[in-house]
Amino acid sequence: MPHYRDEGIVLRTHKLGEVDRILTILTKDHGQVRAVAKGVRKTSSRFGARLEPFMVCDLQLFEGKNLDTVSQVEQLSNYGAAIVADYPRYTAASAMVEAAERLTRESSNSQQYLLLLGGLRTLAAGVHQSSQVLDSYLLRALALSGWVPEFDRCQGCGGEPISFSVHTGFVSCSTCLAPGSVRLGASGLAHMTDLLGGNWEGVGKAKQETKEAVSSVISAYLQWQIERGLRSMNLVER
C-alpha cells in the first residue's frame, strides 16, 4: 500500500465506530485529505490529542481507496490551546477552517495551506481583533481561489468607486452601480484593501462601523461565490 508524508492542519473530525475518527486535513502538498485515525478516541492513544481541529502536524499516511489512514503523527504547532481558550478566537478559527474546507475541496495548493497556517498563528497570538483576522483570511482565500476583488477604480468608467458588488467582486461609482453593489464609501473600500494586503496598521485605524459594514460584505461575497453560507459565521462576534 503506497504511503506518503506531509504536514497538515486538521480542519474537522467525525467519530467513526467506537474508537476511530475521520479527519479532514488541509495538507501543504496533497491538498485536502480525508483520512481515518484508528484508535485515537481510546484514552491510551499516543496521538489522539494531536489530531484535533486547529492542530498543525507532520503526518505519515497510507493511501486508501476511499479514505487514507494516518499511521504516524508529530505535532508541529499547537494553536488550538490558545484558540479554544478565547471565544472570539474560537469562533473566528471555526469559520476559517470551515471556509478552508469549502474552498479546497476540489483543488488546492500550498498557498492556501500557508494562508490558513498564518491566520491560525495570528489568531493564537491574540495581537489583532479576531473578526478582522477572519475577514482578512476570507478575502485572501477567495483571491487565491480565483475570485480576486478589485478596489482601484470603477469598473464602468474608471472613476472614484464607492460601492462593492458581492456578485462580481468589482467596485463602482454612484453612476455605474454593478449588480449586488453595497455602498461602502471610500473608507470602507480602503479598509477592504488593507485587509486584503495585510496592512494591520491601517486595519486598526478603521472605525468600528466601517469594520462591521465591511465584515457583512465579505460574508455576503463569500456566500455568493461558494453558493452557500458558513454555519460558523453565525457565531462570530463582530
Rank of each mutant, 00 (worst) to 15 (best):
Y4W: 14
R5L: 10
D6N: 06
I9Y: 03
T13M: 04
I22Q: 03
I22D: 00
L23N: 01
T24I: 10
T27F: 06
D29Y: 06
H30M: 01
Q32G: 00
Q32L: 10
A35R: 02
G39I: 01
R41S: 03
T43R: 11
T43H: 05
S44W: 06
R46M: 03
R46F: 03
F47Q: 08
R50A: 14
E52S: 10
E52G: 09
E52A: 11
P53A: 02
V56D: 00
D58W: 07
K65V: 09
S71N: 07
Q72I: 00
Q72M: 03
V73T: 14
N78P: 02
G80V: 02
Y90I: 04
Y90L: 15
S94W: 09
M96L: 13
V97S: 09
E101H: 12
N109H: 14
N109D: 15
N109I: 03
S110P: 06
Q112G: 08
L116N: 04
G118Y: 04
L120R: 08
T122N: 06
A124W: 05
V127S: 04
Q129Y: 09
S131M: 06
V133Q: 05
R140E: 11
A141C: 07
L144R: 03
R153M: 08
C154D: 12
C157G: 10
G159H: 06
E160M: 12
P161K: 08
P161Y: 07
I162P: 00
S165G: 07
H167M: 14
H167I: 14
V171T: 05
S172V: 05
S174E: 11
S174F: 08
A178C: 08
S181I: 00
S181V: 00
V182Y: 04
V182L: 02
A186P: 00
L189H: 00
T193N: 11
L195Q: 05
E201M: 09
T210E: 10
T210M: 10
T210W: 11
S216T: 09
S216P: 02
S219E: 14
A220F: 02
L222R: 10
W224P: 00
W224T: 11
Q225M: 13
I226Y: 04
E227I: 02
L230T: 02
L230D: 00
M233Q: 09
V236A: 06
